[in-house]
Design a protein around this nucleic acid. Structure first.
Length: 194
DNA sequence: AAAACGATCTACT
DNA sequence: GTAGATCGTTTTG
C-alpha cells in the first residue's frame, strides 16, 4: 500500500489494515478500525495549518512516515499522506487487538479488551509507540509498520481469533474525516460508515 | 513568569 | 455523560 494520496482516501483505505509493532518484548498487531483525516488546506484543526515547525516537521515529509505528537502527556500516531512539502496525515484512532494481547495488557495496566486500544493515545501505550518513532518509515516492515490485511503473516504470526470490534461506539468499521465538510474529532457530528 | 489550551483518558455517577 | 488529571507548547502580561 502506498500513502501518496489524499488523506481522505488513505483514511478510508487504512481501515481494516494491520498496525504492526515489534519490540524486544514481542510482537503486537491490531486491526485498524477507526481513522481520521487531517487535510493540508482549510483544516484549522490540522497541526500543519500554521506551517512547518520543529514538532510537526514530519507531517510535511514523504508519505508513509509516522507523525507522532504529544497531547495531555500522551502520544498519538499518524500516517503522513501526500508528497513531501504537503502537510497532511491520518490519525489512527482505534485498533482491534489481535496479536500480543497479554503484552498490551501489561503495558496498559488493564485486562479489559475493550479499553486496550480504543483511542489514539491508548493504542500508542499498548503498542509502546513514543516520540522516538516520529518520522519512522512505516513501509519498511520493521519495528512499526502497516501491513495489508490480505498479506500472509502466518510465517511468524499466530493471530488470535477475532475479539470483536473495539471502536469507541462499538460500531462496524468506520472512519472519520476532519472538518472541511465532514466531521470533527468530537464524534458528535455526522460520521461516515464504511 | 504565569496562564491557557489541547487531534485525551480515567474514574465515577 | 462529565469532572478532574495530565504536561508540553503557545499565548499573554
Amino acid at each position: 500500500m502506498h500513502f501518496n494520496d489524499s488523506p481522505v482516501v488513505i483514511a478510508q483505505r487504512l481501515v481494516g489494515q494491520l498496525l504492526c509493532r515489534r519490540t524486544r518484548d514481542g510482537l503486537c498487531i491490531g486491526r485498524i478500525v477507526e481513522t481520521e483525516a487531517y487535510l493540508s488546506e482549510g483544516d484549522t484543526a490540522a497541526h500543519s495549518t500554521r506551517g512547518p515547525n520543529r514538532k510537526n516537521a514530519c507531517m510535511f515529509g514523504p508519505a508513509g512516515r509516522a507523525y507522532i505528537y504529544t497531547i495531555h502527556a500522551r502520544q498519538c500516531v499518524n500516517v503522513v499522506t501526500e508528497r513531501q512539502g504537503i502537510g497532511s496525515a491520518v490519525l489512527i484512532r482505534a485498533v482491534e487487538p489481535l496479536t500480543g494481547v497479554p503484552l498490551m495488557q501489561r503495558r496498559r495496566g488493564t485486562i479489559h479488551l475493550r479499553n486496550l486500544c480504543r483511542g489514539p493515545a491508548r493504542l500508542c501505550e499498548a503498542f509502546q509507540i513514543g516520540r522516538d518513532l516520529d518520522g519512522w518509515d512505516l513501509t519498511r516492515g520493521k519495528r512499526l509498520w502497516i501491513a495489508d490485511e490480505s498479506c500472509d503473516l502466518s510465517a511468524n504470526v499466530v493471530c488470535s481469533p477475532r475479539i470483536g470490534v473495539t471502536s469507541a461506539e462499538d460500531l462496524p468499521l468506520r472512519f472519520f474525516v476532519n472538518r472541511s465538510g465532514f466531521v470533527s474529532g468530537t464524534r458528535k457530528q455526522t460520521s461516515i460508515h464504511h
